[in-house]
Amino acid sequence: MHISEGVLSGPVLLAGAALAAAGTGVGLKKLAPDQIARTAMLAGAFFVASLVHVPLGPTSVHLLLNGLVGLLLGWPAFPAILVGLILQAVFFQFGGLTALGVNTLIMALPAVIGYGLFSRFLKGPRAGALAAAFGCGFLAVLLGGVVAGLALTFSGEHFLNVALALILAHLPVMILEGGMTALCVGFLRRVQPGLLPGRPSVEVR
């Protein structure tokens, strides 16, 4: 889910760039030099995974995975997602330079919010952890849709319908993302709990 170039108005692009820059600044501050390699590698892994088409009924969709990015990275999700979008713009010319800020905000702000709300449950009891992961994946797409909708509506009121349609059309994707995030967190709890944030309340290993 991202907004193409040429659609948004100047002030919206500027505000998006400023907010994305602020978020990236915080993310970089919280990123210990020791963690740069890990963050880069995870950013690359998410980039690769998001290229895959996952079947959904008669069509197929790309995964966004921003909820999971948030859960694993926290605030550094901002620079990691910005890096992913820059690579996407240079390799595939998706999104483009001017919409970079807004598109970073669309994906990274929900990721960080999801991290703040849900990350503390991931090492708790299994059912709670999976529910939290589902909630994070679901909410990340929903909030992304809301940010995208706001950006469109502030650019022109006639985009309000487009924005609402955009959010509604993403409902199946929200459920899919929630489910994928929950399944993946369930996998990581069993295979590599050290990857998940927080201190374990029960030793899962």
Binding site: M41, L42, A45, G179, L183, C184, F187, V191, L195
Partner: peptide, 11 residues
């Protein structure tokens, strides 16, 4: 999801 998880673990 498990393929993705495995990719993350290896990454």
């Amino acid at each position: 999801a498990w393929l993705l998880g495995m990719l993350l673990v290896r990454a």
